[in-house]
Amino acid sequence: MRSFTYERATDTRAAVAAVARPGAKFISGGTNLLDLMKLDVEYPSHLVDISRLPLRDIEELPDGGLRIGAQARNSDVAADPRVRTRYPALSEALVSGASGQLRNKASTGGNLVQRTRCPYFYDTAADCNKRDPGSGCAAIGGFNRIHAILGASESCIATHPSDMAVAMTALDAEIELLRADGSARRVAITDFYRLPGDTPHIETVLGDDEMITGVLLPPPLPGRQVYRKVRDRASYEFALVSVAAVVSADRGTIREARVALGGVAHKPWRSVEAEDALTDRPATMDTYRAAAEAALRGAVGRGHNDFKIELAKRTLCRTLAQAAGASREPVSYPRPDQRAASGGTSQR
């Protein structure tokens, strides 16, 4: 690991000023950053430790929502009674990620800005536009089983690894940011993240002189929330595909829905297309299939990850059925001949 200097921040605004200096970075839980520093993927020359700033609280908002401080640990958020009862999809997403030890350390803000687990990003001998802009993308044409099927570019097909952020996306969260001059702004989580385009090293709209201070959750939609994660192991593994869904159904008709997918794109993938295909439709498998087709219409496989297109559709159907309250209804999936007519394509 390369050498760096360290300071412990005691004042939020001073910390934002301190990170504006070239080569400086915030550290909080450190569970992702220190790993990347050991591998020489990240090499800050100065670390500003923000883990003890007074940003740990989870507070009620006047509108009935919740504000989660950026320094609240993942385990504290998952265990908070208000999160568990009013935003269960967020609690489910958090406990489906990492391990108990990591969740005790990882912060809310750090979880949002954690880096991709693309193995080529981690391998300093490989080309990676995200780690070394302009060098190329070894994942395109390489082993890309875990890579993106939506919103990728010819520069980068990495995915965002967070479970928490997928649930927050379905819950219409806003990210609260603070600048060194004391000015604050709020950004919808869908606008916080960027697609890779030709600048995959710029992952969010967070400025060099900005800090995430909290996450704002509006009052939840009435209805059921579900987070479902599909992965290679039953525990302690990143998602191949995950779905966060909130479904408001009334006497067999879906009134409103929120749908977000994880493991499929450079950012948590909100699917307005799926939501539109659900609104005012009967809560039946045909409707869920139509929503799944709409969500994956532009999906592109890269070879090893072609299976994710079908997997995402099935996971979406299953999750919607559960969220609409029909979890015991037998779930059947499209037959292969129907699948051939569906939207996804493969591009190796």
């Binding site: 050498s3 360290y6 070239p22 090499y43 070394d132 302009g134 090293h201 060099d208």
Partner: peptide, 16 residues
Amino acid sequence: SASDTHAMRRGQGEMA
């Protein structure tokens, strides 16, 4: 940004 990356690299070498 890429310029940050270069700035960081320049900043290396001194032991804390």
